[in-house]
């Protein structure tokens, strides 16, 4: 019994270390994209405080998605499907050049493909999650995050908020940092 116990515990530790190494590798080797965001901060039971990031590519017109069947006009038909956003990196944020359904199109120079999943849709628009919608904030910095949210809601000149994302060869993104007017926030 002791042998099996030690083996299972060892595998648990290996899994944790492997998971961390996997994410570190993706951060280090991924192509860089900056995505324009609109943050706000709800609370997650499991992971504490986070900003919920919505991007300008989070809402997509189904008519502009390559590979979507012509007969289907209702965006609900595409719920749950994988979508790739073709992004051209630039300043202050990357620009979407098009969207592809299910499969990543052949690579083009200067274009980074970002993978997402269609989670909700109606009529002329659908919502896409890229797995980049949460940015966790240390508990003691939540007041600063709330200030930032206030600025976004009320200031006459709204700050430009972007998320710097590492994108791997399969199109999976991972947030490196969040920037306000090009300057990284300190948390």
């Amino acid at each position: 019994m002791k042998k099996w116990f030690a083996l299972i515990v060892g595998l648990q530790v290996l899994f944790l270390a492997g998971q961390m190494a996997h994410y570190e590798m993706r951060l280090a080797s991924g192509e860089t994209l900056r995505l324009r965001v609109v943050p706000y901060d709800p609370r997650s039971l499991m992971m504490g405080q986070y900003m919920n990031l919505q991007y300008d590519i989070s809402r997509v017109n189904p008519g502009k998605v390559h590979g979507a069947p012509q007969a289907r006009t209702d965006a609900d038909d595409l719920t749950g499907r994988v979508l790739y956003a073709a992004m051209r990196p630039g300043a202050p944020a990357a620009r979407a050049e098009g969207f592809w359904l299910d499969r990543m199109p052949p690579r083009k120079p200067g274009i980074v493909y970002l993978q997402g999943r269609i989670v909700w849709g109606h009529d002329a628009a659908m919502n896409v999650d890229y797995g980049l919608e949460r940015y966790y904030i240390p508990e003691r910095r939540t007041r600063e995050a709330a200030e930032l949210e206030k600025q976004l809601a009320s200031a006459s000149r709204k700050p430009v908020v972007t998320a710097e994302v590492a994108v791997d060869s399969r199109g999976r993104g991972l947030i490196r940092r969040v920037l306000v007017d090009g300057k990284p926030i300190g948390y």
Partner: peptide
């Protein structure tokens, strides 16, 4: 879940990574 927090893993993302945390907890 700490690893998920450190790397800002989202809920209903492309690879359903948040849910996967519960699966690995179960499997472990």
């Amino acid at each position: 879940f700490l690893i998920g927090q450190m790397y800002h893993i989202s809920g209903a993302g492309g690879a359903q990574e948040y849910s996967a945390g519960f699966f690995w907890w179960f499997a472990g």
